[in-house]
């Protein structure tokens, strides 16, 4: 058995003059949940497409389940499952027909197709709607059936591109629970997301991808420990957040400032934040502070520190919803 489910070395992909991936290198261990975290356009989908054989890299080496690309792509494809960022099953077919068709694509005999499809419909709580057309499913149901279809041939690796984007909170939670259970069954999971909380909850390791480059890969636990070594303070102001941000930036250049709305600011640091001089500086500038709340640093703060990208901006750019 391979220690690594996938190995990527110096992966580069150019589309004309645009460099989508620039020397990306990482490995994913067998049985792990690996998260690829980054804003829109960072190269997450391009990485997945290269790993599943839908994009030819400009340069670099890829090996999935011990199969070298591009020579052994069909062998690898027989043992991987893919959930794209959009549910892409056939709207005219029912849930059951879609799963039967997906099974047939992998050459399963008719009897096995039915039993496998029915057991997945049961597992994903879709048995009651198995005869309903896929086009008539809700977004959450569509997402679940798309994941079920990717699992029909019992893949060893499951690739998920933004699995919970655009669906309701309940369905997102259910999908996360299912992914956890699948991983417990031994499926290696490669997940791209722009939801930091999702990566924090699910992933064993996380890579931060920005502008086609990996800026950090680490264990989620280590990243969280690092986050907890830092501190953040959220300030509720009288409406002069811009001015306050300017004052803090000038007087305390080691602090990282993150804007909320025009009345709130969050300042973070890798160590302790001394509140007294901070509040005094704002008070002397005539800015009234209604509240100063110390908050536990999260993976989001680590992400902001590492990438310089506001997580809020990333969610907005991706059109994210409440998770």
């Amino acid at each position: 058995m391979n220690h690594y489910a996938m190995e990527v070395e110096d992966l580069t992909k150019r589309f004309g003059d645009v460099v989508a991936l620039d020397g990306v290198t990482f490995e994913v261990a067998t049985g792990e949940i690996f998260g690829f975290l980054g804003p829109n356009g960072a190269g997450k989908t391009t990485t997945i497409n290269a790993l599943i054989g839908l994009t030819q890299p400009t340069s670099g080496h890829l090996r999935v389940l011990g199969f070298d690309y591009p020579a052994d792509i069909p062998n690898a494809q027989a043992r991987i499952g893919v959930v794209p960022d959009e549910s892409n099953l056939y709207p005219e077919l029912s849930g059951l027909e879609n799963l039967r068709f997906s099974a047939a694509l992998y050459g399963m005999p008719a009897a096995e197709r039915d039993s496998r499809a029915l057991s997945l419909l049961e597992r994903f709580s879709l048995a009651d709607v198995k005869h309903r057309r896929f086009g008539a499913y809700s977004k959450g149901m569509k997402r679940k059936l798309t994941i079920a279809a990717a699992l029909i041939h019992q893949p060893e690796i499951l690739f998920l591109d933004e699995p919970t984007t655009g669906i309701d909170v309940g369905s997102a939670r259910q999908i996360r629970a299912l992914l956890g259970a699948l991983n417990a069954d031994g499926v290696t999971i490669f997940l791209t997301t722009h939801y930091i909380e999702e990566a924090e909850r699910l992933c064993n390791r996380i890579a931060f991808l920005v502008a086609g480059k990996i800026v950090r890969i680490d264990d989620t636990e280590r990243l969280l420990t690092e986050a907890q070594e830092g501190s953040s303070v959220t300030l509720a102001l009288d409406g002069h957040a811009d001015a306050a941000a300017r004052i803090i930036a000038e007087a305390f250049p080691h602090l990282l400032i993150s804007r909320g709305n025009h009345r709130t600011l969050t300042v973070s640091a890798s160590g302790t934040i001394r509140l007294t001089p901070l509040l005094r500086a704002l008070d002397e500038a005539g800015i009234e502070i209604f509240e100063a709340r110390v908050v536990r640093s999260s993976l989001e703060d680590v992400f902001v520190r590492i990438t310089g990208i506001e997580a809020r901006e990333m969610r907005a750019a991706n059109g994210g919803n409440a998770q």
Binding site: L54, Q77, V82, P84, N88, L89, P91, Y106, G107, A149
Partner: peptide, 14 residues
């Protein structure tokens, strides 16, 4: 258009 074709491209059939 619906990206369903990707499913076929990913199937191990060549």
């Amino acid at each position: 258009r619906s990206r369903a074709f990707e499913r076929l491209l990913l199937a191990p059939i060549g």
